[in-house]
């Protein structure tokens, strides 16, 4: 006698499960790309990860780093691999390029795998010959490191001058810096040093991509 009732309940259940499953599929995919962003910044996952150091106390805003980078890397028209930003009031500067993040959003987002993160030193290298120019990385990078050239229709960005490193040279920007404001080193060593930050005021939360940089702020 109770069979029709049971049937209707089970059908309702089925609908519920179906709706839940759809919702789960739709929302469940969402956190996949955002997982694991709550580790501390201090200990790099890769002990060999290198990063730029920028000392705001020492920078005089001469932009030699930009000029040297442009010359060495032959910036494609309309691109700026390194930028020197200035906070007018206090003459505080920030020289910024790619932060070769520990969790680079560009590597995850790029559909054609034009980005690779090297195991041996954590440098994030972009291969313009693989880039299709979809511009997704322009949105996902919080630091505006990838640069699109309308002229060539593709992205390019800072490579940490890895070819120079392999020849025992320093990155061009660091060689050119007259005051020593810009340098680099192994992140694991740099982060034991004095007062530093990964988030200069006004910049994005480092938890998003874990940038491999060390900023020594102006006292």
């Amino acid at each position: 006698m109770d069979s029709p009732e049971r049937k209707s309940i089970s059908r309702r259940k089925l609908l519920k499960i179906g709706a839940l499953a759809t919702a789960t599929i739709a929302t469940g995919l969402h956190p996949i790309l955002m997982a694991g962003a709550d580790n501390g910044q201090d200990i790099p996952q890769n002990p060999n990860q290198i990063g730029f150091v920028f000392n705001q106390e020492l920078c005089i805003g001469c932009r030699s780093c930009m000029a040297a980078c442009k010359k060495t890397n032959n910036w494609e028209e309309g691109t700026m691999w390194r930028r020197v930003l200035q906070f007018e009031k206090d003459r505080i500067h920030l020289s910024i390029s790619c932060n070769h993040c520990e969790e680079p959003a560009c590597v995850t987002a790029c559909p054609v795998k034009a980005y690779t993160k090297r195991e041996k030193d954590g440098i994030v290298i972009h291969d313009p010959d693989k880039c299709v120019g979809c511009k997704y990385c322009l949105y996902v990078c919080p630091y505006h490191a990838p640069q699109f050239s309308e002229h060539t229709g593709r992205i390019s960005k800072c490579s940490f001058c890895y070819e120079r490193l392999e020849n025992g040279e320093q990155p061009a920007c660091i060689s050119a810096c007259p005051t020593g404001a810009l340098s680099y080193g192994k992140l694991i060593e740099l982060r034991t040093a004095a007062a530093y930050t990964e988030q200069p005021k006004g910049l994005p939360d480092p938890k998003i991509t874990k940038p491999s940089w060390v900023i020594i702020p102006k006292a």
Binding site: L33, V107, C110, V112, K113, K130, V132, C134, Y136
Partner: peptide, 13 residues
Amino acid sequence: LLIRLILNVQSVM
């Protein structure tokens, strides 16, 4: 180059 669009299984694109 567009054939490469299928390569990165991590990418939503």
